[in-house]
Every structure is written in structure tokens, then in C-alpha cells.
Simulated assay, not measured.
Amino acid sequence: MSQLKNYLSAAVRIALGAVFIYAAVLKIADPVAFAGSVAAYRILPYFGSYLTAAALPFVELACGLLLVLGYRVRSGALIIGVLNLVFIAALASAIVRGLDIDCGCFKQGGEKTTPWAALARDLLFLAMTWFVLKAEARRGRGPEAGAGPEAPAS
């Protein structure tokens, strides 16, 4: 049973990392469109939308790679968790204000994602992040998870 939990936690970790890598690559490929999506939330000033569009995809890419590679998993998962909380707050704000926007997460010329659908998806990602963090805690790995061999107990 323990082996099954290890496989399941690895699968969730890799899937979550892959999702963030995919989303980051799409945003990096078209930063102007992503800046427009960020601006549609009407939360940040004009320059903030472009700054976010320039920086956020690279944070997502780095964290996704950490999860997929299994290196510093807890750090990558914690950052992804915080990002998801921010995304959830922004989506909730858009819903409350009645904005009919596309979340901007996986924009690739396809159909528009409603704020409600994006909110549900981000809640799922938050649950996956929590699962990864719990799995890392069960394994007894701290913030330096994946940093190298475990130090011998003194």
C-alpha cells in the first residue's frame, strides 16, 4: 500500500508540474496576449499587467520543472500553492464584479474559459498541491527536499 501511495504522489506531482509548464510555455509564447488577459481583471495598473505577464510565466515554468524533476519539491509546491490562492482570489474578484473574462491560463486560440470553470480548475490544482505537500511531509522531507542525500542522524 505504501508503494501505491508513492506512485500516486509522484503521478500527482508530475501532472501538476506538467500543467504549470504547459501554461507557462503558452504564456511565454505570447506575452502580449497574456498581458491583455491580466489587464482584463482590472486589478493591476497598466504597467503591472505587463510586469506580471513578463515574470509570472517564468515562475510557473521554474516551479513546474521542480515538481516534474522531483527537486526541491516542497519549495516548488509551496510557490504553486500561493500562486493558486492568488489566482483564486483574482477569479473570485472577477466573478463578484460580474466581469466576463477569459482567465488567460491556457489561451491558445481555443474557446474562452469562464471564470467559474477556471475557479473550479484552480481549486483542483490547489488540492493537488496540498496532496503533494502532504506526501512530502509523510516522507519526512523538509524545505530542502530533493537537495541531495539525507544527512545522518546525530
Rank of each mutant, 00 (worst) to 15 (best):
F20Y: 15
D122C: 03
S75Y: 05
R138Y: 08
L119Q: 11
L66E: 06
M1S: 10
Y7H: 09
M1E: 09
V25W: 14
A89P: 00
I43P: 09
Q108M: 12
L16W: 05
Y41W: 12
A35K: 02
V73N: 05
L44D: 07
L8S: 15
Y7K: 12
V32F: 00
S9H: 09
L44F: 15
S154N: 11
L123E: 10
M128L: 13
P45Y: 11
A94K: 12
L123I: 04
F58G: 08
G140Q: 14
C103S: 01
V68R: 11
R139V: 11
L119S: 04
A35R: 03
L119M: 13
P115D: 05
A147Q: 07
I80H: 00
K5Y: 08
S75T: 14
I43S: 11
I80N: 00
I79V: 15
Q3K: 15
E144Y: 09
L16F: 07
S49W: 07
F58P: 09
V32Q: 13
L126Y: 05
A145L: 09
R42P: 01
S75G: 10
L51A: 15
L85K: 13
F20V: 01
A151V: 08
M128A: 13
A153D: 13
L91V: 01
F131P: 04
G148Q: 13
I101G: 08
G64K: 01
A118L: 04
L67T: 03
C63I: 02
I95M: 13
G109K: 05
